[in-house]
Design a binder for these strands. Structure first.
Lengths: 287, 287
DNA sequence: TCGGATTACGTGCACCGTAATGATC
DNA sequence: GATCATTACGGTGCACGTAATCCGA
């Protein structure tokens, strides 16, 4: 077996052409490198260089050996990267969700059950969530449609209903309830990380009416400072009070009522059993 | 970069299950191996084992690393074999021929021009010779048909005519010349390494009449000891005398007259120019 | 008590550097 | 004389061995 350092030195010599240049790059001296190359030749039992008394050049066999050396070094490097990547992935539970609210609910539940692991979260649409669940990029996903797939285990999680918040002076403020169609023509404030709700808004409202903010800070700032309508939900309202002087109106459309499901690969069900149970219990307690 | 010896040790631990067993196989001690595995983990920046105070077992990351280690070791091993193989091939001229006589003539010519190289020779049929010439298994081939292929360079070499040798008492001994058909029904002695001549004999004579000897020694023995007919050629007769009391009869068929060609890959023509010229000269001198 | 891992300490070898030599331009 | 490879010799780091300790069946 040829040690890696010899292969590194060989490749350095091949790329630099002379022992001196290669030795500089390797932070060793010319004689050391000279000896190494002799040693390499001895171990392989072949000569890799044409030695012209004051110049060494790779011969055909040498070039052939360099190709192997490069492949081995590359694989070695790939191992270093690959193993620590693998280890990191093994120590993190990746969760994908179609909306921020259920994700925010589920994350602490997961963290509690897997204390020694990192929890990484991400928003994406259902289709992407499922493909990435299947290719192991996610271990758990939160969907808003129950998938029809035997390879997945799926459990009903919680529900969320959308509301619109308008100032008392707003034309719609007197309504007991509205639909998306009623909102057409009015500007609405939106955050950008609201998951699948964004798809619904794009579908049901006009693009030019959507005032999308890139940060939640900017959104909250504008909510306070302006009289523009914005969305909220029953779930959000449970958590925080709305600014005073605003009217909260439920949205009647079917689209505005989301049902969330937690899913994992069927074969991973046991591993995340504790999470599924804790999620069910949490919903139950909150009722 | 991870040195090879660490990977070898890792794989040994993986296959033997305990440090002790692995250490025995590696001809090192338990403590040395223990330290090595710690070093490996430090270099990769991950833990590869579950350490249970009196037992170490590979964890998932460890198993993943072992897969890489095996691949690297295999590639390393392949390099050792591959490089010396390559070198050996580079130092030998492989010659394939359809018949022994021209091969015996050409071999010393090649050896003279490539003194520092080994010459390896082999008999095969024309089709095989050409495919193996193209895939570099042969550098030079001797054919008995001129190939129609631009990728090959081909030169007329020499010719050989087949004769049959019979005892004076043989029914055919009075003939001035014969054909293969005349030989049908008579047993004939044959060596087994006669190249394409064997194909001709099988085609033109009956299988049950061919008394094929596996060694030339056995053949010569039988030629001396029996009165069975056997083949010779003008070329062979130039070299050695026939046993006394035998009649040599030429064979008239077109098949019995072989024309040999030397060929190499067109792009290698320059490399073997000296051989082609020397071969031509040798034929010229012998006329 | 034995099988198996780790820690502590000393040693030898293999690889390295310095210095000198050789060779070619 | 500059550039580049090799040889000779002395130093050092590191992987190894020995011995001792620890732990669990």
């Amino acid at each position: 077996m040829i040690e890696i350092y010899l292969l590194e030195q060989l490749v350095a010599v091949a790329t630099h052409g002379t022992l001196l240049k290669a030795a500089e790059e390797l932070y060793i001296t010319q004689p050391a490198l000279s000896r190494s190359m002799k040693k390499l030749e001895a171990q392989l039992g072949v000569s890799l260089f044409d030695r012209d008394n004051s110049k060494i050049t790779l011969n055909k066999t040498g070039e052939y050996a360099v190709e192997y050396a490069k492949r081995i070094l590359e694989l070695n490097h790939e191992m270093c990267e690959g193993v620590s990547d693998f280890d990191r992935r093994r120590r993190t539970v990746s969760v994908g969700a179609c909306a921020p609210f259920p994700l925010g609910e589920l994350t602490p539940i997961i963290q509690e059950r897997f204390v020694e692991m990192a929890v990484s979260t991400e928003l994406a649409d259902d289709e992407r969530l499922i493909t990435r669940l299947k290719n192991r990029a996610y271990q758990l996903v939160i969907l808003h449609k129950r998938p029809d797939d035997d390879n997945l285990y799926c459990q009903h999680y919680l529900e969320e209903k959308l509301y619109i918040v308008v100032p008392e002076t707003h034309p719609l403020s007197a309504r007991d309830s509205i639909t998306f169609d009623d909102l057409r023509g009015y500007n609405v404030l939106l955050g950008n990380s609201i998951g699948f709700w964004m798809d619904i808004c794009r579908l049901r409202l006009k693009t030019e009416n959507l005032l999308i903010q890139n940060s939640m800070d900017a959104l909250f700032e504008l909510i306070e400072a302006s009289t523009l309508p914005f969305f909220t939900s029953d779930r959000i309202m449970e958590r925080q009070n709305q600014p005073s002087g605003r009217i909260v109106i439920p949205i009647d459309d079917q689209d505005a009522h989301a049902v969330y499901y937690i899913a994992c690969l069927a074969k991973d069900r046991n591993k995340y059993d504790a999470v599924f149970n804790a999620a069910r219990d949490a919903v139950f307690r909150s009722m």
